[in-house]
Design a protein around this nucleic acid. Sequence first.
RNA 1: GGCGGGGUGCCAGAGCGGUUGAAUGGGACGGUCUUGAAAACCGUUAUACUCGAAAGAGUAUCGUGAGUUCAAAUCUCACCCCCGCCGCCA
Length: 419
Amino acid sequence: MLDIKFIRENSDLIKEAARKKRINFDVDKLIEIDDTRRELLKFVEEKRAYHNAVSKRIGSLRGEERNLNIRAAEQLKEELSDKEKELKRIEEKWYESMLQVPNIPDLSVPEGESDVDNQEIKKWGEIPHFDFDPKNHIELMESLGLVELERGSKTAGFRGYFLKGDAVLLVFGIMQFTLEKLIENGFEPLIAPSLVKEESLLGTGWLPQGKDEVYKTQDDLYLSGTAEVPMMGFHMNEILKEEDLPKTYVAFSPCFRREAGSYGKDTRGLYRLHEFMKIEQAVLCEAEHQESVKWHEEITRNSEDIMQSLKIPYRVVVNCGADLGLGQVKKYDIEAWVPSERRYKETHSSSYFHDFQTRRLNIRYRDKEGKIRFVHSLNNTAIAVPRILISLLENYQQKDGKVIVPEILRKYLNKDIIS
RNA sequence: GGCGGGGUGCCAGAGCGGUUGAAUGGGACGGUCUUGAAAACCGUUAUACUCGAAAGAGUAUCGUGAGUUCAAAUCUCACCCCCGCCGCCA
């Protein structure tokens, strides 16, 4: 959500944002609705003011004069009621349209039609050269007894899985390591709910656009696809103090995604799952572009540090306009090298939103001058499991099908090699 | 799941259906006094929107939504949340 005043004064920027993000949105229509809304609002408020004045007077009147005024108020009320209904209708329309307004992408965001146009800005690590045909993670994991895919889908349906044996220790070890690292960096650890109310999803921008992507329960609660959602809901409707900013959180949560419309994609293995676990960084900072940029770089670096500690080769891409969500100003993806596919695949996603989310969620702070402003919000994956196992296991595989355990994880498995 | 109590401003806590955006106390901030501090005293202390260059005016908001009424924090209904007791349960 953006400020309607800003939208009115900068409709050309909104048009350009929609174009760059390849989103269909008619700003002029919104402004038209807003004109009607203001007109009606003015009328209704003036009538109400008059009606309030009459009503107030009635309290101190007696006898015939009282009755006269009551009758006058009755009539005013009737005159009001139609316009009030009309105003309500237009306000609903207005809100619906406001939810569609794209946030403005940063100038540094490249043009593009899809994720293939994302631009690589950094590469780290040596791509391993095998003197044998590297196995993919499914072959590796099945032969090492680390996964149960058939029993997974027998039990949990399509994309169901069990992790087993050392994979379990690996997952918990990676998460423990990640948590410790971020706590060291001053992030506050939380275990966040996955079962959330609609407000948080609407506020973060997952709804209404992504309604096919989230599971909804019979109690009208939703299963969140990321801890970003509950962590943004965390401070909903609050006014924070400037000295409390930035708020930096590292939150664990199970994550659920319907993956609607992706039936043909990544059907085997642990890349695309309905249910996984993630540790997420979430930041609320002062409402300055430079602060957002600074934190964006920092949370990206945090994730890179983790990848470097795991010694997994990766690259960072800056996402092109069409690959940005409605609310995102800029996004980096970290992509890890997957030997069996000879390409990098997304493991982390780091974005900032300015006040797009916090306007929807009403998260504000009082600045030094006492002015109330919307905070800025950001988030990035710290680690997503089991997805990270794909590149981890494949990159660390040996000719004999065994897998070397990354040094920093050995203490969690009590071994150097998975065989 | 059953029964009972409750949700008011930064906090605590009042509030016969009419002049209540809301008493009172505390806190915070500003001031007087003081060498300084404390105490005392005086003052300030919600948010959003609309109109306006501004000063200011208006509208809305007492968990949320709907309703009754000329008028709702106060009455009715639904929902959400919190507290207590019983039952069940990792």
